[in-house]
Design a protein around this nucleic acid. Structure first.
Lengths: 139, 139
DNA sequence: ATATGTGCAAACTGTTTGCAGCCGC
DNA sequence: GCGGCTGCAAACAGTTTGCACATAT
């Protein structure tokens, strides 16, 4: 997926968050790389093109994106926070061997348990772990 | 739920992990308090009765329990790891207001997506967030 | 007797905060 | 011009590591 800088600036305007060169680049990266990167991965990758970039800014920007619902946080691993520009309902599978995270469709609305009938649910996450096909075949 | 120290030592033997007074007390606490405590909560609570207790030991013990499948890690929040002595399949709901974590039954096996048909799935977590009934009524 | 748990201090990692300067509107 | 973003350094929190000693089998 490729989105122009203008389109991204439009998105920012629509979500009422201020635009900037850095934010455009970070959101662009997040939308182009659907591999659920960590802050560190985003930083390391972009600092080559934006030498003055700081990790603080990456944190700030991502938090702004999450607040504006342009991205969501993935806490499938307890020691690293990952980000996903796809905010539609879907599950995440992490392979214990290669570490890759796969998206998978899941009918999350379908299994609303009776126990939560009177709860206000605002976020639903489904995390699976195990070994992916590619790693299963490569041994 | 109340489990005797002897029963806990039996559990350790069965799982091939060494028993000790500290471990018995930690697992006992985890089984009696199904509120998914953090390491800090366990430590603060037990150090009163076991003055020499260190956080390192709480970490060590919990990791041993997780390896032995006596407990599972809950990563519903990105900044704190919680532990649950109930390793059967069930979902977790965290209230954004009171912070409480509720268990709820969910037929996790029931929504195995085709996309993961050839994956080896070893762990399934379902995390919901929102506002619980009690907080909805108290405003 | 030997392997393993315990607990102290220090190191480490990911994240947040305070603040001066710059940039977008 | 003003509010908000940027980025440096420092602070911070949760967790891990190294090691000497104690304890379980």
């Amino acid at each position: 997926m490729n989105v122009s800088a203008e389109a991204l600036m439009d998105i920012f305007k629509k979500k009422n968050i201020r635009s900037s060169y850095t934010r455009v680049r970070i959101l662009e990266y997040l939308m182009a790389n659907r591999n659920h990167p960590t802050v560190d991965e985003i930083y390391k990758r972009l600092v080559g093109e934006i030498p003055t970039l700081s990790k603080t800014t990456v944190y700030n920007s991502l938090n702004a994106f999450v607040d504006a619902e342009l991205a969501r946080v993935i806490t499938i691993e307890d020691n690293e926070t990952r980000y996903d520009a796809d905010i539609s309902d879907h599950g995440h599978f992490k392979c214990d061997i290669c570490g890759r995270i796969y998206d998978f469709p899941v009918d999350i609305g379908g299994f609303e348990p009776k126990a939560l009938a009177k709860f206000k649910i605002s976020q639903r996450d489904v995390y699976f772990k195990g070994i992916c096909t590619s790693c299963l075949n490569n041994k």
